[in-house]
């Protein structure tokens, strides 16, 4: 009888944990939502300048990063599934691939930023200040939005690494995988935000 009560409690905890995670995701959507709002307002005001500034973006690199992040989300989902099936080794492999892809995204993103810097396109630079107001705003938004997204990817990689340790030590297994699922939710969120950033900065030209 006691065990049953404990089971019920465990069940409630898992559902509660997931609910908490969703609430956190709502807050993240509001957080990035305000940046999208700023983008919308400024794009409306400086449509031509945004169009011109976007010519500096490398669509190929953006597409590559999009593919990387989407693939990482696939492996994230696979690793959750593998845990549910109780296949520990496979879970670890899938999760490791997710982490490596996440890191690759960050590396590519940093090279991209460095290339912009190299061309003198950084906040307060001489090159940028010679351009129009709209172009400055485009790059301001670009750095803030992809920068904060990058921070989220970084946190995601850190969280997934902790999950990997927990799986390895058996703290997450077939019976207890709520933490991994929640980490997965967060990872997909990070992915989805990028899905919106990609067209706004790379595709609308």
């Amino acid at each position: 009888m006691n065990d049953m009560a404990a089971d019920v409690r465990e069940q409630a905890d898992t559902t509660g944990g997931k609910l908490g995670m969703w609430l956190f995701i709502f807050s993240e959507i509001m957080f990035f939502g305000m940046l999208f709002l700023l983008y919308a307002v400024y794009r409306t005001r400086h449509a031509a300048a945004f169009h011109a500034a976007a010519q500096n973006m490398d669509t190929a690199i953006g597409t590559l990063n999009t593919a990387i992040l989407l693939t990482s989300s696939l492996f994230m989902a696979l690793s959750v599934h593998a845990t549910q099936e109780g296949r520990k080794r496979l879970t670890e492999i899938f999760l490791s691939i997710t982490i490596v892809l996440g890191i690759s995204f960050l590396v590519i993103k940093s090279f991209e930023w460095l290339a912009h810097f190299h061309h003198g396109l950084y906040p307060g630079s001489v090159v940028l200040s010679r351009l129009g107001k709209g172009e400055i705003m485009f790059f301001g938004l670009y750095y803030v939005m992809t920068g904060l997204h990058g921070v989220h990817v970084f946190i995601g990689v850190a969280v997934l690494t902790i999950m990997l340790v927990l799986i390895h030590t058996g703290k997450i297994d077939k019976t207890k995988f709520a933490a991994l699922e929640n980490a997965g939710l967060y990872w997909h969120l990070v992915d989805i935000i990028w899905i919106f950033l990609f067209p706004l900065f790379y595709l609308i030209k």
Partner: peptide, 20 residues
């Protein structure tokens, strides 16, 4: 970082700050 999204000189709008 000098990324000042509400600066009229760089296409921004201080009113948007007040809205947010």
């Amino acid at each position: 970082f000098g990324i000042y999204l509400f600066d009229p000189a760089s296409g921004g709008d201080p009113l948007l700050y007040q809205h947010l």
